Amino acid sequence: MSAQNQPDETQEASLAAKGRLVSIVIVSTMVLWLLSLWLGPKLGLPGRYAFLFDFAALAGLFWALMVSLQIRRARKAARGNE
């Protein structure tokens, strides 16, 4: 019986690792974005760099959203197979 649960356990461990990666990306994106918005004017960077930082943050958060949806689909599919 444990051999039958083995693929489910490895899949769940893989999904948990993806979830941790998503959380790290979200936190680091927000910290770097806030830091760039605070540090940019202090360094005298032009306003166009603020847009660059904003778009980079949006890209990171969009990636996190897509991976989160993949995780949700995989877990829903695994529950449907049981």
Rank of each mutant, 00 (worst) to 15 (best):
M66A: 10
S68M: 11
T29P: 05
D8Q: 13
L34F: 10
L32E: 13
A64Q: 02
L69G: 14
A59F: 06
P7M: 00
S36N: 04
W63V: 09
L69S: 05
V31S: 05
L15P: 07
G44C: 04
W38T: 12
L52A: 05
L65I: 13
K42S: 06
S28D: 07
L52S: 01
F51T: 15
T10N: 12
A57E: 04
E9C: 15
Q11A: 09
P7F: 09
V31L: 00
A50G: 10
L37S: 05
A13Y: 01
M1R: 11
A78Y: 08
A56R: 06
T10L: 13
L35W: 05
G47C: 07
E9F: 10
V31Q: 03
A74G: 08
F51L: 14
V22T: 07
E12S: 05
S2V: 14
P46M: 11
K76M: 09
P41F: 04
A59T: 08
K76V: 12
R79A: 04
E82Y: 13
F55N: 09
A13P: 09
G80I: 14
N81Q: 07
V25T: 07
L52G: 11
A56D: 02
L58A: 10
R75T: 06
G80R: 10
G47M: 12
V25P: 09
E9V: 15
L69H: 12
L58W: 12
V67Q: 02
S23W: 09
A77H: 05
E82K: 15
A64E: 08
S36W: 04
G47R: 10
T10V: 13
A59Q: 00
A59E: 12
K18R: 14
R79P: 06
A17W: 02
T29C: 03
V22F: 00
A77Y: 08
